[in-house]
Design a protein around this nucleic acid. Structure first.
Lengths: 211, 211
DNA sequence: CCCTTCATGATACCGACGTACCATATTGGT
DNA sequence: ACCAATATGGTACGTCGGTATCATGAAGGG
């Protein structure tokens, strides 16, 4: 037998190529030959590791979300050990904004997949749908924890605010993507709402909030 | 010469067919032949009125936004003559939510065009980019007017709130589209923020309008 | 040592799609 | 009434993209 190669590693390499070329020319414009050229392999190889284009696209989606999850995790780790709830929330929200090339590609492709899934039931059945729910639950928990610690407005509805923050971050991400809004203004809007939800380390609410 | 036909009307008819088929199978999957079949004309006719597919797509975008603008206008008119600021804002925001087949199609296609425009500079140069700015300005003016009339929190930043409301409505529209969220929960979140911004109770516009 | 199995390359096939070309019916103007 | 411009149909052409087929190299096991 020939040099037993790691299939999973090869697949990841090819999926990476898919993400790169799709990020440049758009997901709709990507072809098997483009992916092969970008990965530096032959067309046959792409066929070998992913029998069909549909499977390649599905794997690409999974790879994309995995990479993004890892990136968010790194951002959280970079925020230091045990940061405050607000710092954690900020890190989560700002990590999803397309501020550099990698996050820009992620935002573009994730949006493309989402729009595709509306009219493609096979894609809609893929596992990327539950990701937003997880983010919503995590953010809700974070806000509730902050409320319990007296750091956030106790009268706020944590889940509603979590939904709102994620919704704003998502649309503004797209606005940044199309060049309609600057990252700075998007961050300013998010900060405005965080200022509203989190009590500003001040004296007044702290007395009422802490047991 | 043969029966001089109204070119603009024909173009509108074909563009309508484009919207219908694109709403069903996705904008990426639409072809000239599909549009021709949907419109009940020959492929040659589509070529005759739109020389190229690109021009057909551009015209379709314009037609889509025009129809949506008319729809929002109708919603506003249906809200009665001189409704209160909150009722107007509600009508604007709820009109953009994909609650029926027409708005669902609009949301899907507008999002598709927007995502396409990220990697297609010819599409990015089309006139649909300034539409969001217009909505933002209109909503900001509405909020400022409400503040002036003592109906809204005077300490709120009108433009920031306008941006936030539109952003939330947009993302939630997409969430409804992909079946991740119900229209009711989206409306509830928007109402929550309107309750926060507008100070007077729900029947304010009635009192201000009649008595 | 050779055979089997995995990995990879080159290329052919087939359908779809956008576009171009040719043809023809219809009717308004003089 | 005839010409010419307009409107519309049918169809062919070239290309591109996904998939399938054939072929070959490379190594580990009996």
């Amino acid at each position: 037998m020939p040099k037993r190669v790691d299939h999973e590693e090869r697949r990841a390499q090819i999926a990476e190529a898919l993400i790169q070329v799709a990020g440049r020319r758009g997901l709709h414009a990507v072809g098997m030959r483009d992916v092969a050229a970008e990965a530096g392999v032959s067309l046959r190889l792409v066929q070998y590791y992913f029998e069909t284009k549909e499977k390649l696209l599905f794997y690409g989606l999974r790879h994309l979300t995995d990479r993004f999850t890892a990136r968010v995790g790194a951002r959280l780790a970079a925020a230091g050990p045990d940061p405050g709830p607000r710092a954690t929330v900020e890190a989560l929200l700002l990590a999803s904004l397309p501020t550099d090339e990698e996050s820009r590609t992620f935002h573009l492709l994730y949006s493309s997949y989402a729009i595709l899934s509306v009219t493609d039931e096979a894609l809609a059945a893929q596992p990327f749908i539950d990701n937003p729910d997880a983010a919503e639950n995590a953010l809700t928990g974070l806000l509730e924890h902050a409320q319990g610690a007296g750091l956030a407005d106790p009268d706020a509805d944590a889940r509603t605010e979590a939904i709102s923050l994620l919704a704003m971050a998502a649309t503004m991400g797209t606005s940044i993507l199309v060049g309609q809004r600057s990252p700075e203004s998007a961050i300013a809007v998010l900060q405005h709402h965080l200022d509203r939800i989190f009590t500003t380390s001040g004296t007044a609410e702290r007395v009422a909030g802490s047991s």
